[in-house]
């Protein structure tokens, strides 16, 4: 996903502060878009977090599609690209985010990205 695509995704959500597209295998940040400028180290931590989570996820015939985290101070969403399971969309949102909308919009953004490719 390009920064432009990430920005378009982020603009569909009022509560999304940062969106990052990562390669889970190499643990590399591929692109990002945020409300503020985030240092690379910060993006790398989010990428590592996504890779750790999908590595630890229960293994079955199909991979875990997404992992969501919520705390009183914020939320995180990690969405595997089902068309390319080695890549994932990660985002940081407020604790008040609507998860249903977040999931729908993330999936739509990833499908749009796959279609564009």
């Amino acid at each position: 996903m390009t920064p432009t695509a990430l920005n378009a995704f982020r603009n569909t959500l009022a509560d999304c502060e940062l969106a990052v597209y990562v390669d889970l295998g190499s643990r590399t940040v591929l692109s990002s878009d945020g409300a503020l400028h985030y240092p690379q180290e910060y993006l790398d931590v989010l990428c590592t977090c996504a890779a750790d989570l999908f590595d630890a996820a229960p293994k079955g015939e199909e991979p875990v599609e997404h992992v969501l985290f919520l705390s009183p101070t914020g939320s995180r969403g990690f969405f595997r690209n089902l068309a390319d399971p080695c890549e994932a969309l990660c985002c940081i949102c407020s604790a008040e985010v609507g998860f249903e909308r977040l999931i729908e919009n993330a999936r739509a953004a990833l499908v749009g990205e796959s279609t564009a490719q």
Partner: peptide, 21 residues
């Protein structure tokens, strides 16, 4: 090393959406 450990242990929830099947 897991970045969310502190928040998760203190007051947080992590949910893995397993495949629909």
């Amino acid at each position: 090393k897991f970045p969310l450990l502190g928040t998760l242990e203190t007051n947080g929830i992590l949910v893995f959406a397993l495949p629909k099947t």
